[in-house]
Design a protein around this nucleic acid. Structure first.
Lengths: 235, 235
DNA sequence: CACACCTTCTGTGTATACATTGAGGCCACT
DNA sequence: AGTGGCCTCAATGTATACACAGAAGGTGTG
């Protein structure tokens, strides 16, 4: 069996990313140690890692809460994401490691066929994007950059639950990804970076639009205070 | 008094960045708890934070060591740094918060006078660069980007001790910085980003040259195994 | 003499007990 | 009735004790 602290960290991280633990939820050591059947020591270690990841943050001097998610953060996160992914795509184009990207070209061309099915196609597409990310990580050969990208993807995962991409957007996104991959295969670093920025600009617009729609006239839905009140009921 | 874990973390971090703890040095919990006069619990917390920072890493399943510094890493670190600082400069130019940058213009123009003194001028210049970084952090208004930049600067601090910049290089660097600041004041985001890339390219070349020189014909000086042997003597 | 196994021992991972600090509620006073 | 201060309590921060696993050394055997 793996270490208890590792188990608790993985479980809490997963629950935060899946919104089982909503932003603002209090993370109390004793409660969690009881829930996982372990002592406070490994729980503290898990919580410290969550704080380092930015998934939890101190609550007024004492206590931890799941970090809030606000529309404002989305734009900021994409400013960082753009810088990192454009650089990563550019470096991947220079590295000339073509095999995995040739495979991605073929798979991305088949996305329109995939998306005829409504929901299974969606997950197949998300898996494909994950393989694209893996290929880029492998190609750039840069632990610092990969680590920063990983941190960004952690926060993106929390947004995915909010922004329901429609099939039309997914089709567009697949074409945008294909252009990036084509540029990498062609060794065109500049185009790879620019195509990445194009993709992320469209992706951000879509995400923000989706947020506005799901929030409707209620901009405080994902406000931390509102969520905190909502979660106060089960306590 | 502040928390013991915080004290231990700050002390260890400072010792690693200043090379008082060389790369490869073993970080044993009992030894450190004795040295700081605290128990193993806060020491473990401090070590976990160092691992999250990338300043320490697991050593073969058991035990932690100060993470190695290799010339290969410098190039990788600068690939990330370029992406982040170019984006930050670009965003700072768009934010139109001019006051702090106008002040930096004046101070950067006086650097040649500062550097007539050999060593005090150096520290004055480094302070000036730190104020530039602070101004950028303040201007970009982006916690995600600032956090990523902070992580990069942590690793850069460890390199500074290795690469002895000569006064000529510092003068050049000041002119490069001034161009970046001018671009930000002019609101020219594209130029701010490009000038940043120019500065970092020259800075990387200088750093790598300085490393080659200080390592001379001994490329394994900062190899982790060599350092580990060196540190084995006091044990 | 070399290799393999066993023993021992050091160091990490976890649990639990103690200390301390900050928050919330209650009571007295104005 | 409102407010201020005190008190209690709960949760975090720290110390210590226990369990276990990996490594080093020694010894026995081939």
């Amino acid at each position: 069996m793996a270490r208890a602290s590792e188990t608790a960290y993985a479980a809490l991280r997963e629950e935060i990313l899946s919104w089982d633990l909503a932003p603002g939820t209090v993370l109390a050591e004793v409660e969690l140690s009881g829930r996982f059947g372990i002592s406070r020591t490994p729980v503290r270690e898990a919580l410290a890692r969550l704080v380092a990841d930015g998934l939890a943050e101190p609550q007024g001097g004492r206590g931890l809460v799941v970090s809030p998610v606000e529309a404002e953060n989305v734009t900021e996160l994409f400013e960082l994401r753009q810088a990192l992914e454009a650089q990563a795509a550019s470096l991947a184009a220079e590295r000339r490691e073509l095999a995995p990207f040739r495979a991605l070209q073929d798979q991305l061309r088949e996305v329109p066929a995939l998306l005829t099915d409504p929901d299974p196609g969606r997950h197949a597409y998300y898996d494909l994007v994950a393989r694209f990310d893996d290929a880029v990580d492998e190609a750039v050969q840069n632990p610092f950059l990969v680590s920063a990208l990983s941190a960004v993807r952690t926060h993106l995962a929390r947004l995915r639950r909010l922004s329901r991409d429609n099939p039309a957007r997914l089709l567009e996104a697949a074409r945008e990804h294909l252009l990036i991959v084509d540029a990498i295969v062609d060794g065109d670093a500049r185009l790879a970076a620019d195509a990445t920025r194009v993709h992320l600009y469209r992706s951000l617009r879509s995400t923000l639009g989706s947020l506005d729609r799901s929030l409707g006239g209620n901009p405080t839905l994902i406000d931390s205070t509102a969520v905190r009140e909502k979660d106060a009921t089960p306590r």
